[in-house]
Amino acid sequence: MSRITVLGAGAWGTALALSLARRGGHQLCLWSHSTALAEQLADAGENLPYLPGFTLPVDIQITSDLPGAIFEADILLCVTPSQHLRGVITHIGPMLTRNQIILSASKGLEEASFLRMSQVVASITGNPFAVLSGPSFAQEVAAGIPTAVVVASNMLPVAQTIQRDFTSPTLRVYTNEDVPGVELGGALKNVIALAAGVASGLNLGHNSSAALITRGIAEVTRLAVACGGRRQTLAGLSGIGDLVLTCTGSLSRNRSVGIELGRGRQLNDIIAGLNGKVAEGVRSTAAALGLAARYAVEMPITEQMDAILHRNKSPKEAIRELMSRPGRDE
């Protein structure tokens, strides 16, 4: 029996805790940074702000005590927003034992440094690390709808441990050794999903959406390969799989934000309407461009999305510029 602590009680963290509880055979703890949210989870038995409608089993320990949550845990599943991962790992770093596995399910890049989550963790602690990614809406995982994801680690036994402990009749886990490819696929697809949402908000039709998704995976792959990832990884679950889901699914927050931008709403108003939920692509867009500049990789969709988000560029003008770029070979 493994002891698994989920760090982050948003929709995705709660859904993974529910999936692990449904599987059985583990001691589970769900940590929230908010004492009020932890108390609400314990009292109501469900995550009313972030994932209502799903009952939390009574054997999931719920706490806001971080040292207590990580004590004697075999696996620390980090599901915090990417911008908060450094703070959490810095806090717990001195308390960790050498064999505790850190597993990140956060899909993003650190805004200031452009670092992937594995690089953030490695800058603080030498604990074994893995990343979990793939096409997986929280609501569907919580409901037990069959889902396939991938776990990547540069230490195969670590990936195999996660595969064994997380696989269930409703969650199929594949292993991969390509950490950069899996992480960048999960982070950058959010940026392309924003753009796909913009196209939908402008009522541009299916042709435009298909073009954005296809050219989006091309620029995501270019950057991932430049950063040491493998092209075939981006053709898998954490690449094209997650991209298609996030660009087309009605449950996608990033796509929803893009739709509202396409309709002419202001970003601040859209973010306020999320009620504390996070659309990672909003922060990852600038970080993606910073990383692309470091490796001299061209990312035209990401560039236009950044201009819409941060320079008040008209979505119609952004689409016009994408369509008027010089002709290229595919």
Rank of each mutant, 00 (worst) to 15 (best):
A279E: 01
P49Q: 02
A296K: 14
L291N: 04
L109E: 08
L267I: 09
S208L: 14
A199G: 04
I259F: 09
G264Y: 04
G236R: 13
L234V: 07
G134V: 08
Y50A: 12
A286H: 11
H91G: 11
K313D: 01
C78I: 12
D59V: 08
S133T: 10
G87M: 06
I308A: 03
T285V: 05
G281Q: 00
G273T: 05
G281F: 00
L261I: 02
G108R: 01
Q40A: 13
K189I: 05
G25E: 13
Q100P: 12
A218Q: 12
A105W: 02
D65E: 09
S256N: 05
T233D: 02
K189N: 11
M323H: 09
M95N: 09
N203L: 13
D165E: 15
H84L: 11
A296M: 13
A130L: 00
I102E: 10
V182W: 01
A307K: 14
A218D: 08
I101T: 12
N203T: 11
G25C: 11
H33C: 14
E72I: 02
T248M: 06
A199M: 07
E303H: 15
T161V: 10
A69C: 11
F114L: 12
S238H: 04
L7V: 03
S123H: 10
I75Q: 02
L223D: 05
L212A: 03
A226F: 00
A272P: 08
Q27F: 07
G262W: 02
R116N: 14
G258H: 04
F166P: 07
D165C: 10
T161G: 01
V141I: 13
L322M: 13
A279P: 01
I319S: 01
A199F: 04
P180I: 00
G281D: 06
M299S: 03
G13M: 05
D269Q: 14
T214A: 06
S104H: 03
V120M: 11
G185I: 00
V278R: 01
L132D: 09
L202T: 07
E72S: 13
A288T: 10
K316F: 08
N176T: 12
S2A: 15
A122W: 01
I145Q: 10
E303P: 01
Y174V: 05
Q119S: 14
V278L: 11
L41H: 04
A9N: 10
S250N: 12
R3H: 10
S200I: 15
D178N: 11
F71I: 00
P169M: 06
A193D: 01
N254E: 09
A73E: 04
R172M: 09
T285E: 04
T175Y: 08
N275L: 12
E330A: 04
L291D: 02
R265A: 14
P326A: 13
Q61A: 07
D178R: 10
S200Y: 10
D329G: 12
Q163L: 07
N268Y: 03
R98P: 09
A159V: 05
L204T: 08
N268R: 13
E321C: 07
S19M: 02
A138P: 07
T97Y: 10
C227K: 12
E298Q: 14
T248W: 06
G24H: 14
M1E: 12
I70G: 01
M305R: 00
G197E: 06
R311A: 09
L184Y: 13
D269H: 14
I301R: 00
G185C: 01
